[in-house]
Computed example of a mutant assay.
Amino acid sequence: MTTLPVRVGADRPDAGGAVGTPAPLPPKQRSRRTSFGTNQWVALAFVAPLIAYLVIFYAFPLYRNIELSLHDYTPRAFVQGNAAFVGIENYVAVFGSKTFPKALANTALFTIVSIAFQFGIGLILAVFFRNNFRLNGVLRGLFLVPWLLPLIVSASTWSSMMNSDNGVINSALAVIGVAPVNWLTSPDLVLASVIIANIWLGIPFNLVVLYSGLQNIPEDLYEAASLDGANAWQKFWRITFPLLRPVSLITILLGLIYTLKVVDIIWIMTAGGPGDSSTTLATWSYREAFGTGNPDFSPAAAVGNVLILIALIFGFIYLRIQNRTEK
């Protein structure tokens, strides 16, 4: 005689249900199952502002810029919305332009030299201000002044200081017998002039970020190194620099992205001239769109997309380096 297996509790009337029906879920499990959908909506409500921000201020402008670069947008077509589709013709025109090699070289030189000096001077000042002394806070506050001033004020000030005829710099050089220098009109000196102004503007940012990173390095490490007989250089090279590497990487990346897109300081001081001597990709894009009186939006958008691509490449390089550092 064969006996059928009996499920304990599931088929008993006194177990909370009729014969052949499963027992009801415990109260806690029922509440979790019924509130799961509510939790999803709550999570989505918190994420929705971020998604909306990214779509409105990043995704849509990027899409619009790509769309502009693939059409022939004249001012009339921009208003009427009937621009002809031209594919990659604008990119071909940009890469084939005689301005492109000069603008690319100027962008590379402007970016590399600016970041090298901004980071180097900012690091030296951050290490200097790590030591407690009188007027430490006051001096750090004074170094932030270039960062707090509007860029148009800073650029106008540097343009006035570097004026060939009555600028402060040439007046100071005349005192020691040096002939006037054409800072903003000489093709050989104009790029160096705007680089100097940009370095001055970027030092406070590097100082603030690197100084904050130094505060996270334990003082015990320096005390132990002193007991072992390490000098100041050995402390910096063996302790400060390695432990500051993550902060240094993000500082350099942010500085690179910012410097790539600098327009105002160069445009106000030189407008990219004389000729194309101080023209970068960013100022070239601005000039094509707004600086000639005859806007040519499509090539300007193509140049802008090239800048975005360069920034993305360096962003991916940073992520690759960061991943290797964490491993």
Rank of each mutant, 00 (worst) to 15 (best):
I317W: 08
L50T: 14
V303C: 08
A232E: 12
N132E: 05
I252W: 11
I124F: 13
I313R: 03
A225C: 04
V247I: 09
T283I: 02
S164N: 11
A48N: 03
D188L: 06
V92N: 07
W158M: 08
N216E: 09
G37Q: 04
L191M: 08
F133K: 02
N166M: 11
G229T: 01
S193K: 05
P22R: 15
I66V: 15
A48H: 02
V175W: 14
S97N: 15
L221H: 03
A48K: 04
L201C: 09
T74M: 04
A311E: 05
V263K: 00
G315W: 06
F128G: 07
A84K: 10
P27L: 08
V153N: 05
V47E: 02
S212V: 09
I217W: 08
A83M: 03
I112H: 04
S31W: 13
L189I: 14
P295C: 05
G293K: 02
I313F: 14
T111H: 05
A197L: 09
N323M: 11
L281S: 05
Y91M: 13
T99C: 00
V175Y: 13
D188E: 15
A15I: 10
M1I: 05
N323H: 12
G315M: 11
A15S: 10
S114T: 15
G120Y: 03
G17F: 13
K102S: 14
L207D: 01
N163H: 04
G87R: 11
V145Y: 03
I121F: 07
W200F: 06
Y286I: 04
F133L: 10
G177V: 09
P13A: 14
R238D: 13
A59G: 14
Y73P: 00
F119G: 00
K261F: 10
L201Q: 14
N294A: 12
I88L: 15
S69F: 07
L109Y: 07
G96V: 10
N294C: 00
L319N: 11
I112L: 08
V181M: 00
L4E: 11
T34G: 06
S114G: 06
A179K: 14
L142V: 14
V153Y: 08
I257C: 01
L309D: 02
G16P: 06
A105Q: 15
N182Y: 04
K98Q: 15
Q29V: 15
Q40H: 06
S97W: 12
T270G: 01
I239N: 06
S285V: 01
L109V: 15
D264C: 04
S277P: 10
A311C: 01
L109R: 15
P187Q: 07
I66A: 10
T107D: 01
N39Y: 13
S226I: 07
P24G: 04
S97Y: 12
R320K: 13
A15F: 11
A179Q: 14
I124C: 07
L243W: 00
F236L: 13
L309K: 03
P49G: 01
I252F: 05
F143E: 05
G81C: 02
F95N: 03
R64H: 14
L44E: 03
P13M: 07
L109M: 14
L307E: 12
K327D: 13
G272A: 07
G315R: 03
I250P: 12
